[in-house]
Amino acid sequence: MLSRLIDKFKKGLAKTREGMVQKIREVIRLRPKLDEETLEEIEEILIQADVGIDPTLRIIDSLRERIASGEKVEDPENMVQEFLEDEIRKILQPEKAAPVTEISNKPHVILIVGVNGVGKTTSIGKLAQKFANEGKKVLLAAGDTFRAAAIEQLDIWATRTGSDIVKHQPGADSASVAFDALQAAQSRGSDIVLIDTAGRLHTKVNLMEEVKKIRRVIDKALPGAPHETLLVLDATTGQNAVTQARQFHETCELTGLILAKLDGTAKGGVVIAIADDLDLPVRFVGLGEGPDDLDDFDAENFVRALFEG
């Protein structure tokens, strides 16, 4: 099971590895002396992986210190790789990445938020599949009443995964969809409720207020809910992902992140930038387009897959 997961990560991250680790090795092979120029090139490689300038500079600074310590380096290639691996693992703090929560609430309510086009509805479809595979009774709430055909899109996922769905008319109040979904879940005995919301830019005050309201209404319908609020991030997004995470966290007390489209980008370093900035675990990663292409995020695996040749 574990090795399957690692394999999947490796496959999804193959491009990241090529993009980052291979290049770092190459740089050092061509320039075995670890001078400033080499450091600069390593810095650019990290930046190109969307790691973000602050974590990058910090990593490079500590690498510089390590080199300056005068320690004799037999194998600079491995030294640098191991060093970077350690540093990144430190930032990701795998011990903090939430373990898959023991689901004790019934229903267990998960609210999904994010900016437009990051893959919220698709992630919900995949989550529904995952929970259905575990034998759970899943109910979807079509809370994106704004985007054209978002309701239909979720409806198709409900059919595909054999989940129940609660939906209103386009333009309806999303909070009332969530409210009805929770009532339905309680009377139908659902195990998991996944609440979709419209995509919203984190800079739009009104829309952020709306999501706050949805959260309040959920808590009213079922005290203590939502048990998880997950922000979906597009892995191809650059440093703005950090701002998104910050803003959404402020508005709706996120409990974790879903990193979607990780298979598509050559990078993935944005995870490091976010972990560096916020105390938020990545819960799931999207590694493909199929309904089963969603996995628990495991920082340890992530780092291992990132650096295993």
Binding site: A49, T236, G238, Q239, T265, A266
Partner: peptide, 12 residues
């Protein structure tokens, strides 16, 4: 293209 795209914009 999403204006928020990171370094990968070039590759895509």
């Amino acid at each position: 293209c999403d204006a928020m795209t990171g370094q990968d914009a070039v590759a895509a």
